Computed example of a mutant assay.
Amino acid sequence: MVSVQQWTGREARALRAALRMSTRGFAEHLGVALRTVAKWESLGAGTQPRPDTQAILDTALARADAAAQARFEALLHPERKSARPADYETWSEDIERAVVCVSRQDFSFASTLLNRWLGRHDPGGLDDKGLYLYGRSLVLLGDLQRDQGMVLGPLSARHSYLAARELFNELDIPRRVAQIELSLAVVCEMSGQLDASARHYLALAADERLSRRDRARARLWVGTALSKGGDNEYATSVMRDATREFEELGEPEDWSVAHQKLALAHRGAGDLAQALHYIDIARTTGTVDSPMQRVRLDTAYGHVLLSDGATRNDGLSVLDQAATVAHRYGLSHQLRSIEGIRKGQRG
């Protein structure tokens, strides 16, 4: 088992990182003051804990599991790390390229860009910069998996988001943590847990860790979950509030998407005139620059058209076009939604 002859702030910090704890969590784990841990973090090798605290650190290391001890040893030997500062620049560039690929539904290339780094590194052997890049890569992998409809299971968006949330909690970046929690609520909704997802969205809509735009999105998605659950009247009220927020913020794309969601809520309530009004606004104001956006908009439009016998054939044609694009880009969740709409019409 790895051991420490003389603890300094450097070794103490490495133990905290190896245990994947925040500074506050580490202080509570050891039973010492938060300011003590903060001193170790700031002074590093320039400070030595008192003899009684040395013994506490010895005990904490001895009780750590094998994986944590391996991470601790790796952190004490930076020359053995597989990631170097020069790697981080390339890694950052690959993340930005992956962002573009995911937005365009080029999932294969995005996966290659992300997994070349995720497969190369053990988070336990990375410094804070490396952990940040690892966490961002996991979030993007989760986005990719979510868009492909892989929402639950070991190779799923939920699994990737949870791992990323753990890292950003460790790095003490609350904004990133809250954004991941918003993504987890989306996964919850996609898996059919409508009541739970609505509760999550509602809590996040008032969460100050999020930007005003993200809080408005959470409010919009409260309405989406409610509408899917059949509570269309309350859903439209919540969605209109979010729509006004996007207008005040000057977010035209979110404003357009909100009208798409409003159209579906009015369709669910049986108000086809309003549904057509809102979907026309969405179709004429939205910027459709990705296959995912096109499929979502066409699916909503087709769903509205199918609700009127006079436009049923047009609706089927629009859904066929959406299904063709979804199949081409591997958007399996959207394909399931389209098939569900078709089955509802046949039923």
Rank of each mutant, 00 (worst) to 15 (best):
A258Y: 00
L138A: 08
A45K: 14
V238K: 08
E79I: 06
L167K: 11
A178H: 09
L335Q: 13
D147A: 11
P78K: 10
G330Y: 00
G25A: 14
K129F: 03
A18T: 02
R120F: 00
T224K: 07
H266Y: 15
A300G: 03
S337A: 08
A12K: 04
A263M: 06
R35F: 03
R336H: 07
A196C: 08
G344D: 13
H259W: 05
Q48R: 15
T36Q: 15
V257P: 00
D207S: 10
D128V: 06
L182D: 08
W255C: 04
P154T: 13
L184D: 08
Y234D: 08
V295R: 04
R158C: 11
A55R: 14
R10D: 11
G268R: 12
W117C: 03
S103F: 01
S160M: 09
H259R: 07
T47F: 01
D143E: 15
S237Q: 14
V177M: 09
W255G: 02
L34Y: 12
A198D: 11
A64N: 10
S337D: 05
L118E: 12
Y132T: 15
D231E: 14
R296D: 12
R104A: 13
A70G: 12
G31W: 07
R71G: 13
G9S: 01
V304K: 05
L182S: 15
S42M: 06
T90M: 00
A67N: 06
G192V: 13
A322Y: 05
G130D: 04
P51N: 05
S332L: 04
L262F: 01
I95S: 02
L131A: 09
L319T: 10
D289T: 08
R104C: 05
S332G: 03
L113Q: 12
R296M: 10
S191H: 14
S332Q: 09
K228M: 12
T311W: 02
H303K: 02
R13D: 06
R35N: 09
A74K: 13
M292L: 14
K129P: 03
A66M: 06
R136C: 11
A206H: 13
T324R: 10
R24M: 02
L226K: 13
T324P: 00
V186E: 15
S160V: 03
V186T: 14
L335T: 06
A225I: 05
W7A: 10
